[in-house]
Amino acid sequence: VHQHSWCVDKERGYWLFNCGFLINNDSISGYAEASDKEVFILHVNGQNIVFILAHHGMEATDLYPIHISYELVSMSPSSLPNMSRESLLNILKDAINIFKYNGIRDLEENARTLIEFDF
């Protein structure tokens, strides 16, 4: 596991792990290819929540050449005993906004990245 795939909030005890893109075995080329669906694991209150998000590249600007929009495809589980779905989604959004495009390994690219959420 690569160190740059993680985003950790030590104060709250949360972490986010970017698992990468799901593979599409039924691609037009006939070869396995990465899909537009990206998998994240969010660890909150001792439990892992698996999110599948559709990753959409958006129009670049001079200020933000990397512009990404995420759409929620699924989350499991959808809530925790002491935390609502909305709270989990807000934590996820915060973590992805910190993780940005490429985690801690690419601060320059991350500074030029704009993330939007369609959920």
Results as ranks from 00 to 15, higher is better:
Trp6Lys: 05
Cys7Thr: 02
Val8Arg: 06
Asp9Ala: 02
Asp9Pro: 02
Lys10Cys: 13
Arg12Phe: 03
Arg12Ile: 12
Arg12His: 04
Gly13Thr: 00
Phe17Met: 09
Cys19Arg: 12
Cys19His: 13
Cys19Pro: 01
Cys19Val: 07
Ile23Lys: 11
Asn24Ile: 03
Ser27Phe: 05
Ile28Asp: 13
Ser29Asp: 11
Tyr31Phe: 14
Tyr31Ala: 07
Tyr31Cys: 08
Glu33Leu: 12
Ser35Thr: 05
Lys37Trp: 00
Glu38His: 01
Phe40Asp: 04
Phe40Pro: 03
Leu42Ile: 12
His43Trp: 10
Val44Pro: 00
Gly46Ala: 02
Gln47Phe: 01
Ile49Leu: 15
Val50Asp: 02
His56Pro: 01
Met58Arg: 15
Asp62Tyr: 07
Leu63Arg: 14
Leu63Ile: 09
Tyr64Met: 10
Pro65Gly: 01
Ile66Glu: 13
Ile66Val: 15
Ile66Ser: 12
His67Thr: 08
Tyr70Asp: 08
Tyr70Lys: 11
Leu72Phe: 12
Val73Phe: 05
Ser78Gly: 11
Pro81Gly: 10
Met83Asn: 06
Ala95Ser: 07
Ile96Lys: 08
Ile98Tyr: 06
Asn102His: 06
Gly103Cys: 05
Arg105Glu: 11
Arg105Val: 00
Asp106Met: 08
Leu107Ser: 13
Glu108Ala: 14
Glu109Cys: 12
Glu109His: 11
Ala111Gly: 10
Leu114His: 08
Phe117Ser: 03
Asp118Asn: 15
